[in-house]
Amino acid sequence: MMDKTEQIFKGAISVFIKKGMQGTTQEVAKEAGVAEVTLYRRYSTKENLFITVIKHVLEKKFESKVLKIAKEDDTELFLMNIIEDRLEILSKNYELVRMLLSESLRGNLTDKINLPEIIFSSLKKGLEYHFERKGQQVDIDFCARQLGGVFLSYLILPNDQQFNKLTIQERRDIAKKHAKSILSTI
């Protein structure tokens, strides 16, 4: 059985995915199976609830493995692993990510839960770490933007199949193509 916080988070995610910040605490309470007063006691405002829930999800689902991946000596393999990892996570959480991008474009998200900023800053840290270890001078900002463009294209542009539903070989082939493309510009 779920504890009350988990119940609230699950209900809130469900409502926020469907309605973004427009979702009401009444809808969240109903979805979570708790009294609306419980939400107010715990979070005081809908905005606090949204921030708390989204921050929890981002830390849990989008916790960056980029620095671990950045230890790879082979730059092409490093880029392939980042691309595969991020596309896998983004595609598995497609609806949530689309909602967060939408709310971000509306200016409704703080830096703590701004998904594009979180992705971009973690990419830059990983790239800086990797290229410093190799002693290479690379335009980190440009490289991170290229990677960000790859990720956004898989979220926004139509795909025949979600990345996480492709075979392992198909994922590797896609990651390799993008890695080679990025490598050719650095």
Rank of each mutant, 00 (worst) to 15 (best):
H130N: 15
R98S: 01
T167G: 11
R86L: 06
Y94A: 00
E31H: 09
R41Q: 13
E170T: 12
G148H: 10
L105F: 12
F9V: 14
D139V: 09
G23P: 09
S104E: 03
E103I: 07
M80L: 04
E128H: 06
G135C: 01
L79Y: 00
A35W: 09
V15S: 07
N93Y: 00
S122K: 07
I140E: 06
S91L: 01
S153N: 14
S104W: 03
M80V: 05
F131H: 11
Y129D: 02
S153I: 11
F131L: 07
K134S: 14
I156H: 05
Q7S: 13
N114H: 15
R41M: 09
I8K: 06
D85F: 08
E95H: 06
L67F: 04
T75R: 13
K92V: 00
A35I: 09
E36F: 00
I119Y: 01
K30Q: 14
S121G: 03
D73T: 09
G33P: 05
R41D: 10
S181H: 12
F62E: 00
E63D: 06
I168D: 11
G11W: 08
L115N: 05
L101G: 03
D73W: 01
L67Q: 11
S91W: 02
T185S: 14
D139M: 12
T45I: 08
K180T: 08
I156Q: 10
S122F: 00
I17T: 13
K177R: 14
L90H: 04
F62L: 07
I119G: 04
E31W: 05
K125Y: 11
Q22A: 13
L87F: 03
D3K: 14
K30I: 07
R98V: 00
A32R: 08
F16S: 03
R86S: 01
E103H: 05
D141M: 08
V97W: 00
A32L: 03
G107K: 04
A12C: 13
